[in-house]
Design a protein around this nucleic acid. Sequence first.
DNA 1: GGTTAATATGTAATCGTTTGCGCAAAATAA
DNA 2: TTATTTTGCGCAAACGATTACATATTAACC
Lengths: 358, 358
Amino acid sequence: MPVIFPQSPAYISGSMADKTKTTIHDIAKKLNVTASTVSRALHNNPRISEETKKAVLKAAKQLNYQPNQIAAALRHGKSHIIGVIVPTADRSFFASVVRGIEEIANKINYKVIICQSYDSYEKEVQTVEALVSAGVDGILASIGKNTTAFDHFKQAQAKGVPVLLFDRTTDELDVSQVMIDDHLGAYKIVEHLIQQGCRRIAHFTNPRKISIYKERLRGYQDALRDHDIPFEESLVVESNLQLEDGRNSMKKLLKLKKRPDAIFSASDYGAMGAMQVLKEQKIKIPQEIALAGFSNEPFTSFTDPPLTTVDQLSITMGNFTAELFFEQLQSDKKPIRQKTILTPEIIIRASSLRKENN
Amino acid sequence: MPVIFPQSPAYISGSMADKTKTTIHDIAKKLNVTASTVSRALHNNPRISEETKKAVLKAAKQLNYQPNQIAAALRHGKSHIIGVIVPTADRSFFASVVRGIEEIANKINYKVIICQSYDSYEKEVQTVEALVSAGVDGILASIGKNTTAFDHFKQAQAKGVPVLLFDRTTDELDVSQVMIDDHLGAYKIVEHLIQQGCRRIAHFTNPRKISIYKERLRGYQDALRDHDIPFEESLVVESNLQLEDGRNSMKKLLKLKKRPDAIFSASDYGAMGAMQVLKEQKIKIPQEIALAGFSNEPFTSFTDPPLTTVDQLSITMGNFTAELFFEQLQSDKKPIRQKTILTPEIIIRASSLRKENN
DNA sequence: GGTTAATATGTAATCGTTTGCGCAAAATAA
DNA sequence: TTATTTTGCGCAAACGATTACATATTAACC
């Protein structure tokens, strides 16, 4: 229910300035010089006398001058804006990556345009085109789940807009990539479970052909193998890894003749679903069944027991991605295509901690 | 540890296009017309023959033309970009609001620049200036905690950049505002606690002069009064409302001669801290002490018991803010300053549910 | 004093699109 | 047929900042 305010006098009377941004021409006129002199003065060009510079700076302040970046951008082809594409900005992980990118960008006076692809291929294509149109100086993207063709990124590159991928990447593009080592994260956490005495470790995974889930599965398998634990097909449950899926998967596993003594879910939500079922059935966590998830979602520290998980270094990833990008942007050499793989950290919490001191 | 890739041949050889965006002049040249004709054709101007239009569209597609929005923006003073300023983009609430804004903006082909003030006044000022410089068509902002002067926003308005505030707003500016009714949210949730049989309801609040906490406190007091429950100063605990603060506040309350039988925390984190302490001390939730928070942070549905809280309609707020903004932008009339107050929803969960059917 | 160099500023083109104005040619009206 | 309108397009000036090139003034040097 909107409340309509009475218009304030100031708003009506036009006592506010005349809605005209001042330009270098205004400053020039005031000082009886030309716009080029003003421009040079503002850029501290050595060919301008100190006297004039001071006068220009003073006038600029007086007139409350702010440069029109659009004009500047048009003139020299640099907008000082970078585009970031994420599947969705309100997932904690991506929100943090974006924050990490922004931190770096802001330091050197770059602005960030955030776009969401909603995992739609069409939207992703449009977004890339729009960003190119908007004249961004580069695109940092995490590709959508349904993207299998990459021409839109190639087009951007062809038009001189550098592209860099993070988290969800592909080798089909000639771009630098920043991601985390999903295999290692999974390996480490499964190893941890083994160290806690677990021997029948189940795994919740996703059937999609997305590399992250395949990597986590591989990490799980490799850790088992390296510790001489046989891999059992029946202990791997495929699903969408959401809360409900986790519940269903857990129920399914509880029906096995030989129950697992630990669950490693490739997502925290899946692990959370499992936790709910276990608690409902009064199965002790971690004594009877230990639990571990993946992603370090914010909620994992608030569950009871708190959930062991893998932190994906989201902020770091953002920082790193941005730093890499700006490095490549500044060096006028052809960017060196490189793949940076960050090492994830396992966060051990009570849901997997059977021994007191470990 | 970066992995350096071998450069792919394509990347070196320059087999990719020549990094030159095609312009309307390129199209014009190809068709032996002028750029103005091309421009008009692309804009479906009735003065251009169908024949020419078709030819232009075809050539545009062939040459992979994408308009340079920077040039267009310079020409007609509209960038089709809006700036959004939030204290921090990785807090669930703001991330969702931003998403809500983006949803609407995208529909009409607007891009969103996201900026974070980190609750720093200086950063906020800089950000506003930068956005004006960047030529945004408007600024949607949630003001920082430390902002008490608003000249930077006035300056933006003076330069013709409309401003609209959401969530954290102020009446000191001549702008439309979108927020939620904190008073009502608090009132409703306290009323709910009363209906559950609670009579000694404590409140965690924040001493800052931020209106949201004052409003929640008022809502709490009004609900008590309307149900003939005396207000007790000793049941109101001030803190920063973070997890630790909640723990401390709870411990403090447990030392009272007469313990409270419910806690309404102005933040979910505070409530979570209380929950931890109660569980440590084996105090039953909600039977002995019921709990309610505020904000509907994502973790609240995963606690044990799940936490009763107030949802702030973040996405809706974003949608609404953006819609309001674009309405005002489109109507060439002077924007009508209006205050929109959304009604929050209380989310009742087990932490406060004493009676089975309610 | 005349040539050269250094200094400080102006001129004008440019970035790519948009758009008011104008001008033919074609179409219609008288 | 002539007058008038309509149609289709070109011309050129914006938008605001930047910058290569030119110019004017002063200083410096032999």
